[in-house]
Computed example of a mutant assay.
Amino acid sequence: MVQIVTLRERLAALPTTVRRRAVATGHRASLVADARAVAPEVPRSAEPAHLERAARRLLRRAAQDEFAREGVARLPLPAEDAGRTDLRRADLPGEASFHAFVEDVLSAVDIAPSPLERDDAVALREARGSADAYGLSPEVASDLASYLLCRAHALQEIEDATGGGPVRGTGLEEYLAAQSVQVREEIRDALVRQVRVPLELRAARERHARLGGGEQAPAEPLPPRGEERRDLGRRARSAVEFAQSEAGRAAFGALRSGAERAYGRYGRDGERRQTPRTPPQD
């Protein structure tokens, strides 16, 4: 008599590493989806470094937005036609007012363990008080960067457990502290570039002149919200079910038959047009 093996026994017979990797794959996909909800540019096959770079870009952009929002009006900038040499002589990074502005921006950056879940992070990014015509506020960008970095650390833990990369073995607090140091350095560098590179300073001035006068910047496209994604999924399932139903097959069959008849008629007409006429005989 053939022995019947239950599903539970089959699962128990699987190697432990296979089951662990299956669970890790699902957890990894969930973490990447969390990150893509607020940073759509993150690839679906993202590694921890992708999320770290996305967090740093978010904060650099927020610092540049803050410079256009307030820095242009607060700092003693040179003439608008100042070139690279003029900016170097002005030495704005050495001014006390510039140092005060940089410290104000950095004071809004707090990289810490994030309690946000995916829907919380999406709601924070889309909230009316999170951004204006210039962009996200530094405080909101800091919260979203912490959210991304916590997901990056969780991804790194999965890679450490499954042997998918170099083992770092750092705790969350230590990891975030190291990331905070790097983020702050990049923010300082980005703000220094704003007053040393003529094109970047000119762009910030133009944004301040345009948006400070009440003109609205074009809104950046946001990823579809949860309800919209669910609606798209329902439409796709309905289309598949209709295509597989008897009525759907009949409709597609009628369309195919009509297309075949039209193609055949076109082919015959083309043959008649291409058939050379016999010249009249004398």
Rank of each mutant, 00 (worst) to 15 (best):
V102W: 01
A90P: 11
P115R: 06
D110Q: 07
A112V: 12
D110S: 11
F98T: 12
V105S: 00
F98S: 11
R89I: 05
S97I: 13
E117T: 09
F98R: 04
F98G: 04
F101Q: 02
L116C: 10
S107H: 11
S97T: 14
V109T: 15
E103F: 08
F98C: 12
A108I: 06
I111A: 00
E95I: 09
H99Y: 04
P115I: 03
D91E: 15
A100K: 10
A90D: 11
V109S: 13
E95A: 14
S107K: 06
A112N: 05
D91M: 00
A100E: 12
D104H: 13
G94A: 12
P113F: 04
G94L: 04
A100I: 09
A112H: 05
P115D: 05
L116M: 05
A96Q: 09
P115S: 05
H99C: 05
E117Y: 04
R88G: 12
D91F: 00
L92Y: 03
A90K: 06
E117S: 09
R89S: 10
L106S: 09
D110A: 08
D91K: 00
I111W: 01
R89M: 06
F101H: 02
D104W: 04
S97N: 14
S97K: 11
V109A: 09
D91C: 01
V109Q: 09
V109P: 11
A90S: 10
D91H: 00
I111S: 00
V105G: 01
R88T: 12
E95D: 11
L92I: 13
D110L: 08
A112C: 07
E95Y: 08
S97C: 10
A90R: 07
D104E: 14
F101S: 01
A108S: 11
S114Y: 12
D110W: 06
V109C: 12
P93R: 01
P93H: 01
A100W: 14
E95F: 04
E117Q: 08
A112K: 09
R89Y: 03
L116P: 02
V105R: 00
F98I: 08
L106C: 10
